[in-house]
Design a protein around this nucleic acid. Structure first.
Lengths: 213, 213
DNA sequence: GTCTATAATAGGATAGAC
DNA sequence: GTCTATCCTATTATAGAC
């Protein structure tokens, strides 16, 4: 399984390569990170990397797959879930944000390399995930639960918040990842709901569900 | 002056280097962009770049200065401006977002290189700008105009929205940059205001000011 | 599973002709 | 102001010893 931030003490060399590579890719970009830097961070020599991965590209490809596997899991669950668009959007945000905060790997670089031709085949799944998010927003606007406005604005802002969260809080242990996730989700819901006062009720309902399940 | 998206037809070689470098830095990162790629995009040979800039680093440094010069101008103006925190935050957001949309250069890479030791001296001004923004938010919460919550959450979200806007819409001509800026600013204000219904009144007031000034 | 040595290529920057 | 030619270093990846 994908390691969490609390498990970084007991990683295999392969996992430590993924961890250090993810941090360096986040800081200096995929192209801007050399295999020597990754190896140095892991504590091995540069050619030893190639015993665990056939190329630098496959290290990045595995990080992309880790990110997409979890995002797909959450998106599929909320697509089939019960509840109004607001409740499902709230649950989706909390699940995604707390995964980002808990995952040991810093997945910031994933989205930015999807424009690179080397990873073009990974892009379709990313687009599908974006579409699933937009669909919830459109449903909320159509039903009158969300304020009447361009769904693309809310969709963009949510994308940017998730991206910002990945970049700024990924990979570092967060004091209280759950509370942070709820605060961010509440911020978005306040902006989006036709009746912003419903935020507290939605938050309480989702927290109850999570404590039971 | 810094060129806008509508002026990309009449640029000097020096400005075209800044333009193409900004786009490549945005896509592939500062480290991940070679001087050969920049030269090819401009339509000259690699050594010719060094007639206009003494190094690759000085190209990036100039892009940072362009970004910070405008951000400082806007922040200083709103620090001294009249109006409630909500009105000043709204004006700040609209000014910053429409600058991002109008500037010919894609300034996405600026924030990410500030962690690089090569540009450490530019970082202080960035931190001062962040502080000015946080101060407006804290003032709004203390006065009761904003909803009672952790000011750092709103601050983070605003940072992420501005960053996302830079990354996704910078450098490309926007159909209606002003309307887009107002929609994003309204989204943030709805989430932040104790009385979200005041958004339309604040928007109308700022639009009136802008049409007069 | 990690090492040293090395191949082959791409990187930033300079010199000097035009 | 741009060019060709070139220097030196850094890059990804392989071969083969231990």
């Amino acid at each position: 399984m994908t390691p969490t931030v609390t498990q970084t003490g007991t990683l295999s060399t392969r996992e430590r390569i993924l961890l250090e590579a993810s941090r360096l890719f986040a800081r200096n970009g995929y192209r801007g990170t050399s295999t020597r830097e990754i190896a140095a961070a892991v504590g091995i020599r540069q050619p030893s990397l190639f015993h665990h991965f056939p190329s630098k590209q496959t290290i990045m490809a595995e990080l992309i797959d880790i990110d997409h596997a979890e995002a797909t899991r959450v998106a599929k669950r909320e697509a089939a879930a019960s509840g109004s668009p607001a409740v499902r959007l709230y649950r989706y945000l909390v699940a995604d944000i707390s995964f980002i905060c808990r995952c040991a790997y810093d997945l910031s670089s994933v989205e930015s390399v999807l424009n690179d031709s080397d990873f073009g085949d990974k892009r379709q799944r990313h687009n599908e995930l974006q579409g699933a998010r937009l669909a919830i927003i459109e449903e909320g606007i159509d039903s009158g639960e969300f304020v009447k406005s361009d769904p693309l604005i809310a969709h963009k802002v949510i994308t940017w918040i998730l991206r910002g969260d990945i970049v700024d809080t990924a990979g570092e242990p967060q004091a209280d990842a759950d509370d942070f996730a709820h605060q961010l989700a509440s911020f978005v819901l306040r902006a989006v709901l036709a009746d912003p006062d419903r935020v507290d009720e939605i938050r309480a309902g989702v927290e109850l569900e999570m404590n039971q399940g």
